[in-house]
Amino acid sequence: MADERRTPLNAPVVAPESEEAALPARRPAEAPRDLLPAIEPERRLNDWGRSERVEGFMDRTLIEFFYRYWFRVEVEGIDNVPAESGALLVSNHAGALPPDAAMIAKAIRDEHPRPRPLYLTVEHFFKGFPGLSMLIPKIGGVAAHPANVHRLLYDERQLVLVFPEGRKGTEKLYRDRYRLRRFGRGGFVEAAMRAEAQLVPTCVVGAEEAMPVFGQVDILRRLTGLIYFPITPTFPWLGPLGMLGYLPAKFRIRFLEPIDTLALGGAEAAEDKALVQTLAQEIRAQIQENLHEMLAKRRSVWRG
């Protein structure tokens, strides 16, 4: 070993004064994308726990039936969903066990020229509930943790669906249908900006009528440990299966023009709370406006 290449024992190994030194302090802010684990083709699940097999089965049977024959989904503006980069779909949300997420995912899979999987952010609650905690990751559900959204959007460049109304949306009663709740604290905008991903506002009409919620029973919610306990035409009268008792409302999904967060300042601008709030409000207004327009055109709840 050549002597001049050795690091003398009495010298500090990491030179604190200059960053250009031969041995820099190595604390990269973020690990690079190309070091993400490679996909192992032998596996049927991916690292998020998503299962091709379970998802494919659901897609061919239950979801296919609802999409084609029950809700007769019609899609507008599918080209607004980006074909490759990471994008965050922001949608209105309603119903007891809302079918809207599954229908949006199916729309992208069936109608998009380059179909991509859609990850759905769900409450942390589902990870702790037996049974659901097994099923939900297998069909593309991911806990709504900012770090999860960032990894999906920035590192893996995937499509992620978020319902900013969250639980407030699913708790909403029938008489409040199509009235958007508060969009949280704009966390979804911040996540998209940090990840330099596009934001795609999405409007869904039909979900509110597919499973109208007439009331919430707080005491039963507490007893069952669920996050809400709705009264719908079929639940709880038909037991847990009543959660799938959807009425055949006509579904329309409209994807609006994507918003490029990079043009708004990207990751640095995510710190700007005012900008984040404004953008969240704008997206909310845009979705609400489009919902009104779609509702005004709709002649019948069932036939569209």
Binding site: L23, P28, A29, E30, A31, P32, L35, G266
Partner: peptide
Amino acid sequence: DPSRHPAEALAESPAPADEST
């Protein structure tokens, strides 16, 4: 270039080996 994060350049080069006895 949106595809490149500034941190990537730093993280890509492996840490230098320290060859001292």
